[in-house]
């Protein structure tokens, strides 16, 4: 290896990541905390999130209730902890649908070209022209509010960006020698697309997902805020913000706490996306 190669080699990736991108490490840590909170919610939440105590409603932060109580006397800390679950569930569903769907369409379109490409891209254009939030409302209006419907609406309108990106990446590598070599050795069709093209397209997909999730957290909270997400009394950050707006001048912590959680969650994905982009850059082998 020449000196230049040594200076640029990733080596132990985590070590390098933390040295070169502390922001990404912060993002990953916060996300890990959120995941842990969701997984261990029953164990670490001090109170039952839906247990009401109307006498003690809108209590300010104290040793008993670290962030006080909401309009129904429910402990806010517990609701925040349980609130990680709907948020994570929605964004996971969205990610699991939109990324594979969009990427697959993009790869097929970029590899085969011709009329396949034209048809798929026109379809992509059509879907892309739908406004996401409005469509989410429409879905929910037709199918009723609920976590699943909101996630579906978001996923089905978010895949076009992935398709376009995967298509461009695939077209770029279409002429590469390693693909030509593989074809000459008899590797064709799905095996080629998913075994050879996909690994090169994947890094950017992962980065895009992380970045999108930052926005999804906000959209999911927005849907909850508008009453289109989970049904009460389930704890969800967006709904909590909505509940807190009526008392925001006197008891600001009721709306502010979930608001800060939304911010932090979104931020963690942003930071993570930044670091992942450096880490997964295919040009560095």
């Amino acid at each position: 290896m020449t000196a230049i190669e040594i200076a640029a080699a990733p080596g132990s990736r985590l070590l390098h990541l933390s040295r070169r991108s502390p922001a990404a490490l912060v993002g990953a840590t916060i996300l890990a905390i959120i995941l842990l909170a969701a997984a261990l919610a029953p164990l670490i939440a001090p109170y039952d999130p839906i247990a009401q105590d109307v006498a003690g409603r809108l209590a300010p932060p104290s040793t008993a209730h670290w962030l006080g109580t909401d309009g129904f006397g429910r402990d806010i800390v517990s609701r925040l902890i349980y609130g990680t679950r709907p948020t994570l569930l929605i964004i996971s569903l969205v990610a699991l649908i939109m990324a594979p769907l969009g990427t697959a369409i993009g790869i097929v379109s970029g590899y085969y070209g011709g009329w396949v490409d034209r048809v798929l891209m026109r379809l992509t254009d059509v879907v892309m022209s739908f406004p996401r939030l409005i469509l989410a409302f429409a879905f929910v209006a037709v199918l009723g509010p609920g976590l699943l419907n909101a996630a579906l609406a978001l996923a089905l309108t978010s895949w076009p960006a992935y398709a376009r990106q995967a298509r461009v990446e695939t077209q770029t590598m279409r002429r590469s020698d390693y693909l030509a070599g593989a074809e000459m050795l008899g590797i064709r069709g799905p095996r080629l697309l998913f075994g050879h093209v996909l690994p090169m397209v994947l890094p950017l997909v992962v980065v895009r997902v992380a970045l999108d999730l930052a926005g999804m957290v906000l959209i999911a909270a927005g849907l909850g805020f508008l009453g289109l997400g989970v049904r009460p009394p389930t704890a969800e950050w967006g709904t909590m913000v909505a509940d807190g707006t009526s008392v925001i001048f006197d008891d600001w912590w009721v709306a502010a706490s979930p608001g800060v959680c939304i911010l932090i969650a979104s931020l963690s994905f942003n930071l993570l996306a930044d670091g992942l982009r450096d880490l997964l850059d295919p040009r560095r082998g």
Binding site: D177, Y178, A180, G181, M184, H196, P199, M200, G285
Partner: peptide, 19 residues
């Protein structure tokens, strides 16, 4: 297809970087 094979110019580009 089996009878005809090719060795490409750039050894850095003819093998799949991830395999």
């Amino acid at each position: 297809r089996r009878d005809v094979q090719m060795v490409f110019q750039d050894p850095y580009a003819s093998l799949h970087p991830r395999h």
